[in-house]
């Protein structure tokens, strides 16, 4: 165990460093949240001050909830993110299983090809994607976003999950085969439960860029009915005047679902990240 070897002094230093890092990382989030509860004048006069009786204001939330249809935007974001994660995990895990489990000609080439997307940003293909979506009539649908995000998330998912699936014991899968499990049951009932931590890791790494993305919603689905939260918040950012109250309130609200999803995955996530290091 690593614990026995670390001195209290050393682990003290480590904790101080981690706490400082946490404070730095959380500071912008903290700033957004406190300022979202202040009136416009106080945001500019005293950006670092906590909201008090005179500066407290919900005007930002008010405009977010009245202007534009933010409930719908939230719903859109949630649908796009969760459906994309589902497909990324499902197809990523299936491809990873095939690559790690079966010997076939071109196996490693295929693995390389599937992982290539990690290095080549999908945005380079935006024009072609847009043309494709126009041709198939998918512009301004959530389906368009889901398809793009699934494609975007797959390379990393396949890459991470293949490595993890290689570690699942062959004997276990063979025992399943002898007990009459089909390849699908071996995949869903034996292998998937064992790579759950890796799946959570992939889910979190997939989720955040999708939730925060502005590019594809703006290009592929800018209509009012398909706007995501990130795109929806942009209405408050004008060329000349920006409604900071509303922007900050919208951002604060947008953090919440991510937090919820993160907590759902986090226990598995930590296991996934450390499972290589700690036996």
């Amino acid at each position: 165990m690593a614990k026995a070897r670390t001195s209290p002094l050393r682990s003290g230093f480590v904790h101080v460093a981690l706490i400082i890092y946490t404070l730095i990382a959380l500071f912008p989030v903290f700033l957004i949240i406190i300022n979202s509860f202040k009136d416009r004048a106080s945001i500019f006069r005293n950006p670092l001050g906590l909201p008090n009786a005179s500066s407290f204001s919900l005007v930002g939330y008010n405009s977010v909830l009245t202007q534009g249809d933010f409930t719908l935007y939230f719903q859109n974001s949630l649908i796009v993110t969760s459906v994309s994660i589902f497909f990324v995990l499902l197809f990523g895990a299936m491809a990873a299983f095939a690559l790690s489990e079966y010997r076939f000609r071109g196996n490693s080439l295929m693995g390389l090809y599937l992982a290539l997307g990690i290095m080549i940003p999908i945005r380079l293909g935006t024009v072609a994607i847009l043309q494709g979506m126009v041709a198939t009539g998918l512009v301004n649908t959530l389906t368009a976003l889901i398809l793009v995000y699934t494609a975007q998330g797959l390379p990393l998912a396949v890459f991470i999950l293949t490595e993890f699936m290689r570690t699942v014991s062959d004997d276990l899968k063979n025992a399943g085969r002898i007990d009459g499990l089909t390849e699908y049951s071996i995949f869903f009932r034996l292998v998937l439960p064992l790579v759950k931590p890796a799946m959570a890791t992939v889910a979190v790494f997939t989720m955040i860029p999708i939730w925060n993305d502005l590019w594809f919603p703006l290009i592929l689905a800018p209509s009012d009915a398909t706007k995501t939260v990130t795109l929806g918040s942009q209405v408050f950012i004008g060329q000349f005047v920006t409604n900071w109250n509303a922007v900050l309130a919208a951002l604060t609200l947008a953090i919440l679902p991510v937090l919820v999803l993160y907590f759902l995955f986090s226990r598995q996530l930590i296991r996934g990240i450390t499972s290589g290091a700690v036996k």
Binding site: L172, A175, R177, I178
Partner: peptide, 16 residues
């Protein structure tokens, strides 16, 4: 394998 009328015991136990 499941239809061959065999059973196998593995070195690593391979329990579910």
């Amino acid at each position: 394998p499941a239809k061959r009328g065999i059973a196998m015991v593995f070195q690593t136990y391979a329990l579910y």
